[in-house]
Design a protein around this nucleic acid. Structure first.
Lengths: 217, 217
DNA sequence: TCTAGACAGATTGTTGAACAATCCGTTACG
DNA sequence: CGTAACGGATTGTTCAACAATCTGTCTAGA
């Protein structure tokens, strides 16, 4: 199976189920049902639960079980508030030396490009996640990487709520590419500004969808 | 015992063992030894391990076991780099309204005061942790709270390496109190500046101890 | 002497069954 | 109609066992 732990494999399954909407926010995820569906032991499922709780994709309530988090517009604001602090900050702190360390970003852009051509929007989402994680990784802070990992995981949770993912994912492909172009030229200050407006737009789009949804509900 | 989960109780035990130096950085922590010492099942120990790994107090290596993280001066720099961004940023973003929301900070200062009088330095450390977590909580960002929880946990890990904790903890009592005084008066900009220099000093002190240690080793 | 590989012991990963504790929806009662 | 007891279902924890992997030792060979 996927190298090593079966618990990890179970975690990846659950992660897909969540990002693909097969498990909706608020849903309870029972140990026995997952165990029987994936043909693993209950104990292994529990370990997988802990892994996903680590990334914020599941919440654990003692003696009650694990649930897919109920996300609201407040969560959208919270996630983007942190992204708007972290990501432009990282870009602004870069110097000319870093121009030659953008390989992972280029890979992520290419990944998004081919996925978009194939209309494979979930994969575009993954590529986008990779892009922003790689961006933050340039700061060289292991702890910031952990934080960003969690943020991007929760980001996908937010996107999973939206009906039409294309509407949200499509703009990323172009804007990531343009941001990378600026950075390759060493124009980091411009890049940070661009990223700020880009994130602001993104937040606005998701927020609109959420507030619409909350109005009806 | 501590309400609810025994896994959590085991986690708290391990956490103490680490912060008190009974478990040193680099040490391997075996499942069976912990299970027999605390008279719980191996499975419960594994769950406790995951909880602490979540806070960065243990690292899990597949098929090899869990270890107390090996901390270096690079980790000191990383932790303080993030603290220096987060904490003064939070203080600067406060407004007059927040002047009446400093109860938890006052409690933490009081806790540190009484603990210091009793020469109970580990408890002073805990109080200091509470102070800074409460400070960041003022930002009202659940995700930032999670990040800060991890940072403070790792901070104690760093302190655990130092031989004489008094030397490091004592200054905190006074400076937290003074910072709180500024904030109570609504002088947040000054407070942020104060906090910056305070954190800078703290980093310097710990860094000196670490670099001395690394020179000998 | 040093390196490489095989072997054995110890540890982790996972399973399955079992039981206590807790939660939750239903029912019966006031 | 509200409430309290009841019972089924789910979680928390334990235990025993086995497979997979790691680690250190020992031997064989250059």
């Amino acid at each position: 199976m996927s190298q090593g732990s079966t618990a990890r494999a179970v975690g990846e399954h659950l992660s897909e189920w969540i990002t693909e909407g097969r498990l909706a926010p608020g849903d309870k995820v029972s140990e026995t049902s997952v165990a029987s569906q994936l043909e693993v032991s209950r104990n292994t499922v529990r370990e997988a639960f802990r892994l996903l709780a680590h990334d914020g994709l599941l919440v654990h309530e003692f003696n009650r079980g694990v649930f897919v988090p109920q996300v609201t517009s407040a969560d959208v604001r919270d996630v983007y508030r942190l992204r708007l602090i972290i990501e432009p900050g990282v870009v602004r702190a870069l110097t000319a030396r870093d121009t030659h360390r953008l390989g992972t970003l280029e890979a992520a852009v290419a990944e998004a490009r081919t996925a978009a051509r194939r209309r494979d929007w979930p994969r575009v989402g993954t590529a986008n996640m990779h892009f922003h994680r790689s961006l933050v990784a340039l700061a060289g802070s292991p702890r910031l990487d952990v934080m960003m990992r969690r943020l991007t995981a929760e980001l996908r949770l937010l996107f999973a709520v939206i009906d039409d993912p294309r509407y949200l994912y499509q703009p990323f492909v172009k804007r990531n590419k343009e941001l990378l172009a600026l950075m390759t030229k060493g124009r980091f200050e411009e890049g940070a500004d661009y990223l700020e407006s880009y994130l602001g737009d993104s937040e606005g789009a998701i927020l609109a969808a959420f507030e619409e949804r909350e109005r009806t509900a």
